[in-house]
Design a protein around this nucleic acid. Sequence first.
DNA 1: CTAGACTGCAAGTAGGCACTTACACGCACC
DNA 2: GGTGCGTGTAAGTGCCTACTTGCAGTCTAG
Lengths: 202, 202
Amino acid sequence: MSAAHNTGERILDAAAELFAVHGYAGTTTRAIAEAAGVNEVTLFRRFENKVGILRALGTRIQQQQAGFAAAAAPDSESVRETLLRLARMEIEATMAGGALAIRLAFDAKSVPEVAELLGEGIPNNAAGLAEFLAEHQATGELRADIDPNVMAEAFFGLTSSYVMYRIVMGVAPMPADVSTDDGIAQLFDLFWSGAATQKERV
Amino acid sequence: MSAAHNTGERILDAAAELFAVHGYAGTTTRAIAEAAGVNEVTLFRRFENKVGILRALGTRIQQQQAGFAAAAAPDSESVRETLLRLARMEIEATMAGGALAIRLAFDAKSVPEVAELLGEGIPNNAAGLAEFLAEHQATGELRADIDPNVMAEAFFGLTSSYVMYRIVMGVAPMPADVSTDDGIAQLFDLFWSGAATQKERV
DNA sequence: CTAGACTGCAAGTAGGCACTTACACGCACC
DNA sequence: GGTGCGTGTAAGTGCCTACTTGCAGTCTAG
């Protein structure tokens, strides 16, 4: 513990893990310090508050989300490929974060500080996808008889519930390899068969 | 407050609402008592513990779930009709409960008591649906190339995410009428188009 | 080798928490 | 009219929590 270089990061890592499992209210600063292998006092010296830790964690998540949004489709990709890739990215990111985002999304209702941080991130993501979907409804690749917002909701419902189920049901937190998990492929296939127009299916 | 008749129920109602919003750890017994319009001491006289309240709430939820499971398909109904009805029931039940079940599902990870109570409810529900789906895969009404468990997951993902989104995004907790909400119909239609075999699709 | 930044350790504070105790009031039933 | 039962009120207990203070050690930079 002598090196000063990564103390802050270790604290945030520990906090993220604990918040994801126990929620914000259910996590004690002592537990964070212990998990980080750091003295509790150090917590308050680096981050002013318990909320300060959360705040720092929030900006971290925001950066990750930004990265996700930035991953626009390369032109060579089909809509189907883009969406599947997005689904895997979403799931991987969420699971890697120990479902922090989902958990905090709930806490946001009661801890105003969290609400501010998570801010418009989730709705914005959904709106962004809806826009993308609407474009491809216009080109006839996706069904036009379903509201793009509903379609986006279904998409995120698919990915978030994949993660939720594995948390709630206590399954292994991370399958061997998300990028090749057949379950995701099937789940996505179901979504795609429902979302695409007839000629685009299969 | 003189009448003794419904004190226990009022306490449970208040607790359910608060647990749903603040989580178990984030809810104080004082807050429950206040919301129920009851003295805090009464809480401990009726239910031994804070956990006791949760326990009582758990059996309540279990009964609701039981009611859901019992609603087997009348013979006259098509698979599609049955699933749509199930979806609406699921959503209505979950939203009526203020998303208590979803919230507690998360707390279950950290509060062992909750885990026991919620117990196998959710997995069982999923398994039951998977069985139902498998039967209709056999008759050729549903696609056989998707694992029935994956299909069940998609179904519950659809319903639970409908509720989640409305919580997370702070939308009105209950649309005017769930049983006629067009959003659900579209969401379900997307699922159905993905799950049914070609000849069954509309 | 000195200065400063970073950390650990021991002890403590004030407040909030779940939960308790003791007493008094009102109501129903016999 | 007395006996319970259910409830309210007041006060308090001990524990845990976020957070603080003071001091000492260690590493790095100049």
